[in-house]
């Protein structure tokens, strides 16, 4: 059982690549903003959108 648990913990989730990318993007953008940077300076690197309905 312990061996099985250990093996399971070393296996990645199917969405590992997606979640890892999301986390890396979030960290990079957050650090940029904390340094006083603007999102517009990152517009070529990330796909920012404004999906809110104004109605």
């Amino acid at each position: 059982m312990e061996v099985k648990d250990k093996i399971n913990k070393t296996l990645n989730s199917k969405g590992a690549t997606i979640f890892k990318k999301m986390l890396e993007d979030k960290d990079a953008i957050s650090k940029h903003l904390k340094k006083g940077g603007k999102l517009s300076e990152l517009k070529d690197k990330f796909k920012f959108v404004k999906p809110l309905s104004t109605n």
């Binding site: 603007k38 959108v49 404004k50």
Partner: peptide, 23 residues
């Protein structure tokens, strides 16, 4: 404030920025 985000400022003068990314 721009084409990339939304913002609000609290009564304690804490400035929040909200943004969405298309995945």
């Amino acid at each position: 404030p721009d084409d990339f985000s939304y913002e609000f400022v609290t009564s304690q003068e804490v400035h929040y920025q909200i943004y969405f990314l298309d995945y």
